[in-house]
Design a protein around this nucleic acid. Structure first.
Lengths: 210, 210
DNA sequence: CGCGGGGTAGACAGGTTCGTCTACTGGTGG
DNA sequence: CCACCAGTAGACGAACCTGTCTACCCCGCG
């Protein structure tokens, strides 16, 4: 049941004789369970009691680390951000050194995400759907999307795109669309479609149809 | 407070001396309130009690028309579908008789939607984020998206696109992306970006750069 | 006049949710 | 050996949610 949806971040390597167990493995258990349940069921649908039960920890311990559900949600979003950003970067780098190729390659991360079973769309988009627009949760989502777009814009600039800003916007649009369509259309081709559309736009903007 | 987010469907014109008030105006009041609250707050966040209170009707009346909350949600989604589809078609037709131009023009509906204040993204995407994947609610979302894509594919075929299917997929992707980014990026340009990207893809596929 | 349909007002039951709080336990360092 | 810390187990309160049910009211039709 320690799933992580197939994604693992090294939990601060337990070496060094555990100097008083600095951040407790309990916190990690909670976060792991929250990651799974929040994503699978939604922020509101996943209750504290369930998370506590499935974490195999006690209520007091939970509230020690996360004074309120909101804190846990925020921590969950931080983890999603770290993982998803990591996958995006990895996919881009796997496409070689050319920034234009990287911009296309990054869409492979989308494809892998859609293939994973239990896929339920973008955690951030889902979170935003459940939170009012003034909220910290909503803010975290906006920040994440902005960061991704900024990174893309950097690549677009390196690639010598005509309008890096505009290209980055378009690609981020297609990425979000792909993330959404993956669930909605029930269409396994969504990721491929996104990649193709992106490639076309990139080629047109960079000016190298090859 | 009878808002409808600026969108109105003629409620079966009250002429003909109200033949026993066939579908009661109470039902309409409930639906109108639900439309507003479900969209603004989310499906789970908007409680039955609140909807009843703000509708100005009684609990018994509510449960007479909608035996369960789910029924109301489904009715809400039906209404959203009717309205959004209507706006999409209207925007397309406003672009003139040329199907390729219509495919671009339809993105004006996205622009108007994003501009409306209280805009909180695509009601269907939001609904899907709050419902498990076996659900009727989720199914309604999938059906809606499929219908929109099918309609686009028809236009693409008429326009003589090289691969109508592929083009429709791409455009539907961009539309969804635009709907999502409108809230997430806090970017008022999202709609314009989507339109431009769509235009570029259409031109490439139809082969008339003009 | 009186009946019945459409409506109101609101109490109530049963379940769930978040968060607090008390009481207990087991291991480790000084 | 004892104090302390991380943790367990779970009762509890208050709010809130959905859905049912009783009691009443008003108005048009026969």
């Amino acid at each position: 049941m320690s799933v992580y949806h197939g994604l693992m971040t090294t939990p601060a390597a337990s070496a060094e004789r555990a100097v008083r167990t600095p951040a407790g493995p309990a916190k990690e258990k909670i976060l792991a369970t929250a990651f799974r349940l929040f994503y699978a069921q939604g922020l509101r649908a996943a209750g504290i009691d369930t998370i506590i039960a499935e974490s195999g920890i006690s209520k007091a311990t939970f509230y020690k680390y996360f004074p309120a559900k909101d804190e846990l949600i925020l921590a969950y979003l931080d983890r999603v951000d770290a993982i998803w950003t990591g996958q995006l970067h990895a996919a881009a780098e796997a496409a070689g050194p050319d920034p234009a190729a990287q911009l296309v390659g990054l869409f492979d991360a989308l494809a892998s995400a859609c293939r994973r079973d239990g896929y339920r769309g973008c955690a951030f988009i889902n979170a935003a759907a459940e939170s009012a627009s003034g909220t910290r949760v909503h803010g975290r989502t906006v920040a994440h999307k902005r960061a991704v777009r900024a990174w893309m814009q950097g690549l677009a600039t390196e690639a010598g795109a005509a309008h890096p800003d505009r290209l980055a916007r378009s690609l981020s649009l297609i990425l979000d669309g792909g993330l959404a369509s993956g669930v909605l259309d029930g269409d396994p081709e969504a990721a491929k479609t996104a990649r193709d559309a992106a490639a076309q736009l990139i080629a047109a903007s960079v000016g190298t149809p090859e």
